[in-house]
């Protein structure tokens, strides 16, 4: 299944940064949320801006329109100012996209544990993130560093305890009924 673009993705002026500032803000907002849902769908956390220019997200061959590097940077800048992305370095070559907030992830993972009956038991990080059991879940193959931060949120909420944090092979979590 491929990502289905919204109808405005086929609109030529969407690819020109609008001179009217009010319109431009709206446009960047639309692009920002499109980049975020595209990355969420394709599990892209590290977003190489230059390489993405030839991707179907920024390059719409059917209408021969393409986002320029400057405009792509403006989109990411807008996302950074709204907390949905961070630049990885001053050169602005690559950005980390926030697919979900930590709170979102915490809810998603805890709800999953509750649904499959993992509350009250210990689950290894491998089982949780890389086994068949979670193959169809959004957090499947989640970045471990991000995983630890999400677990931090659940620990604070009293919903989970993390074991052997930092040791990739032994890392585990116990979900607590709350």
């Amino acid at each position: 299944m491929s990502f289905s673009f919204p109808s405005y993705h086929n609109l030529p002026p969407f690819y020109t940064l609008q001179p009217n500032l009010e319109t431009q803000t709206k446009q960047l907002e639309m692009w920002g949320s499109l980049v975020q849902s595209y990355c969420r769908f394709n599990k892209i956390t590290h977003f190489p801006v230059g390489d993405m220019l030839s991707n179907d997200l920024f390059h719409n061959k059917s209408i021969s329109r393409q986002v320029t590097i400057d405009m792509a940077r403006a989109i990411i800048d807008f996302m950074v100012s709204h907390g949905t992305a961070q630049w990885e370095g001053k050169e602005k070559l690559r950005a980390t996209i926030v697919l979900r907030t930590l709170d979102d992830w915490a809810d998603i993972i805890y709800n999953w544990a509750y649904r499959v009956g993992n509350v009250g038991t210990v689950v290894t990080a491998f089982e949780l993130l890389e086994s068949d059991e979670s193959k169809n879940e959004e957090f499947y193959k989640m970045d471990r560093a991000l995983f630890r931060r999400v677990m931090g949120v659940l620990e604070k909420q009293g919903k989970a305890r993390l074991f052997n944090a930092g040791d990739e092979s032994k890392e585990g979590v116990k979900f607590v009924e709350k």
Binding site: P12, F14, Q18, P19, T23, S64, R65
Partner: peptide
């Protein structure tokens, strides 16, 4: 805000 421009053509 009723008109948007396209400079791609």
């Amino acid at each position: 805000g009723m008109v948007w421009v396209d400079d791609g053509g």
